[in-house]
Simulated scan of single mutants.
Amino acid sequence: MALAVIAGWLALIADTDRRNVTIPNRLVVPGVLAVMVGALVHPMAAAGALIAALPYTVAFTARLSGGGDVKLAVVLGGLLADTASTLLMVFLAQVLHLLAHLAARSPGVRRPHAPALVAAWVTVVIPAAVFG
């Protein structure tokens, strides 16, 4: 049940970013706060959040990513709370985003990244949920 609620919330974030090329704070900040609280009990949530946020923070400082992407990465890494899974998610998100960019064939256009990031998270989470 909880996984379905989280997946629905992430679908809303991805769709909002797809339509507006922005992730509103009102959608993502509650997740950041939840991860921060969860990290007090489960330190690996903090590690996952930091690992996921690092490449997005670097991209943000180079103006290659938005602040919403950084916050979403914090949430998704914190939810994974596993180093290997978080690294896989970040890698898959980059591959999916690149494929979407190449398929669109319109250079210079801003592309939303949340759909790729959420899809990568789902790709990592679903097999773990099904196969343990």
Rank of each mutant, 00 (worst) to 15 (best):
F91D: 03
A104V: 03
L87D: 11
V58S: 06
A14T: 11
A73G: 01
G78Q: 02
L10W: 09
A4I: 15
N20P: 00
M36D: 09
P127G: 07
L10R: 08
L33Q: 02
G48E: 00
P115E: 03
W9M: 01
G8V: 11
T61R: 14
A59Y: 06
V35Y: 02
A14R: 05
S85E: 07
V41S: 13
N20W: 12
W121F: 14
W9I: 05
P30G: 08
V75Y: 00
V118D: 07
V122I: 14
D17A: 05
L96R: 09
M1T: 12
A2I: 15
A81C: 02
A2M: 14
N25M: 11
I23G: 06
A49F: 03
R19A: 07
A73N: 01
F60E: 14
D15R: 15
T86A: 10
H97Q: 15
L96D: 07
R110I: 13
W121N: 04
A129Q: 13
P115K: 02
V122K: 04
A11M: 07
W9K: 07
V75E: 03
A34K: 03
A49L: 08
A7K: 12
G108V: 00
V74F: 11
V109L: 15
R26Q: 12
L64F: 02
D82K: 08
A2Y: 14
A45D: 03
D82P: 02
G108P: 10
V90P: 11
A116L: 05
G48T: 06
